[in-house]
Amino acid sequence: MAVTFVEEVGRSSGKHPRGGRRLRARGRRRLSDAMFWLLAALLALPSVLPLLWLLSTAFKNYIETQVVPPVVVPFSLDLENFSSIFTPQIMGYFTNSVIVTACVLVLVLVLALPAAYGLARLNVRKAKDLQFWIISLRMLPPMAVVVPVYMMFSFIGLNGSLVSIICMSTMMNASFATWLFSTFFEQVPEETEEAAQLDGLGRFQTLVRISIPLARTGILTVMGFVFVFAWNELPFALVLSGQLTQTFTVFLSTFTSTNALINYGQMAAACVLYITPVIVVTALMQRQLAAGLSFGAVK
């Protein structure tokens, strides 16, 4: 990155061989650009250094995780930590996470997409009030929500099943997604939809064949966020899961630091394995991160 930037500085100041003072002012501007660029990069460093530490720890053997001064780069590149995770039991937790996240993604699409379209386009009475109610569900502290939910599910005998976790995660994410989907559907030009309807398409076909394709970047972004939120979810899974239905985040919660015998290498390997999909999705959504995280308030 730094190299390309320096090249650009050289190239563009050479392109304008104008009067001395102007050139010097431009040069000063370029220099301050470079300083601020460096400052921005330095400010991002605290975000990434602990993560690099996590990555390095994942490849350390037990001794290397326990010595002082700490080992920075584990040249032994021990893969023991990773192989110790690939047991049927722990991979079962991973599979549970995959199942929960996949179901939440499908349910959110089925529930939130039509509802968002309806709220944006179909003159629902009090649409704004409904939307405020829906989004405020997303604002509740999960641990306060899960106490009542736990009792409901134990009453109908669904505690300890993946169904209960999926329902709660769907509720939180559908409210987030409905809000954002609506803002995207509002941006689809109404004339286009009207033209489609004059051509004889019904409401549902208009949604599927016109509006969804036109809003697809936004929809994909939201689904990216739903993936991350459902994947990362702990409080619901911790309370509602049973022995066999633990998700991977519940498994991770067993590595508490009050436990003196914790194997940090294994812990780090499990974390690295679990956050890799999140980092891939984040990289894919780079341009849309701000819009999604601010619930559409920032473009």
Partner: peptide, 28 residues
């Protein structure tokens, strides 16, 4: 400037991580 979008994404990474992973990492 070039590269600023990448810097922002890297800087934003912690927000996207599971709270539990962040807790475990800092516990260490």
């Amino acid at each position: 400037l070039r590269g600023s979008s990448l810097i922002r994404t890297v800087y934003l990474l912690p927000v996207m991580l599971p709270e539990i992973v962040v807790g475990l990492l800092f516990g260490y």
